[in-house]
């Protein structure tokens, strides 16, 4: 009986708990990075996810950026038609959910990491640039942040370097590279 209790708790904690803790949400559009970054369009990350001359990273591009190519449908996909009809034509912004969204008090300068330290995007964001469609966005019911911040594994053990985006990840990497930073270098 002790064993079954143990098994029950382990099952509930490892299998049931993440399913209760996270709420799944779908992205507004089944955007394919593979099509855009692959041979068909041949775009680089920085073409849409712009780091401007002032060092400001613009993140997910606005509808205006999409409209540069998709002012009218280029192909016959249903998703593209939806983009044009529902967002581009009425010039409405897409309500993207951002996997890597950090708390307001965290400050992450893409300029320092991408332009200066030359860290490839995939080092933190994973091979997302090759995905066919956005993953399901899982939001933590307590914190309101994406599951990607903790990492896909509920144990917190990362099987790939890009899994998990918590502060210890930042600190470990900074320590490895011998950076001496104060708190307010990464907090605002």
């Amino acid at each position: 009986m002790f064993g079954s209790g143990l098994a029950l708790a382990l099952f509930a904690g490892w299998y049931g708990f993440p399913r209760i803790l996270y709420r799944s949400e779908t992205q507004p559009l089944q955007f394919s990075h593979a099509v855009h970054a692959g041979e068909k369009a041949g775009m680089a990350c920085g073409d849409c996810h712009v780091l401007d001359a002032a060092g400001r990273f613009h993140g997910i591009p606005g509808t205006a950026k999409c409209a540069e190519c998709h002012s009218a449908p280029l192909g016959d996909s249903k998703e593209e038609k939806m983009l044009v009809d529902d967002y581009v034509t009425p010039s409405k912004e897409l309500p993207w959910r951002v996997y890597s969204r950090q708390p307001d008090n965290a400050y992450f300068p893409h300029a320092a990491h991408v332009a200066l330290a030359k860290i490839p995007c995939a080092e933190c964001h994973g091979p997302y640039g090759q995905s066919e469609a956005p993953r399901v966005y899982e939001v933590n019911r307590i914190t309101g942040y994406s599951r990607d911040i903790w990492g896909p594994n509920i144990s917190g053990i990362a099987s790939h370097p890009w899994e998990g985006m918590k502060m210890d990840r930042c600190v470990t990497c900074h320590a490895t590279h011998g950076r001496r930073d104060g708190c307010i270098d990464c907090h605002k």
């Binding site: 001359a53 002032a54 060092g55 400050y107 300029a111 332009a115 605002k188």
Partner: peptide, 19 residues
């Protein structure tokens, strides 16, 4: 804190130029 947000912005601008 001497407008640390502005120091962040200045550093990011320098970093974008590789400095």
């Amino acid at each position: 804190n001497f407008c640390h947000g502005r120091l962040h912005a200045a550093k990011a601008k320098a970093a974008a130029k590789g400095s």
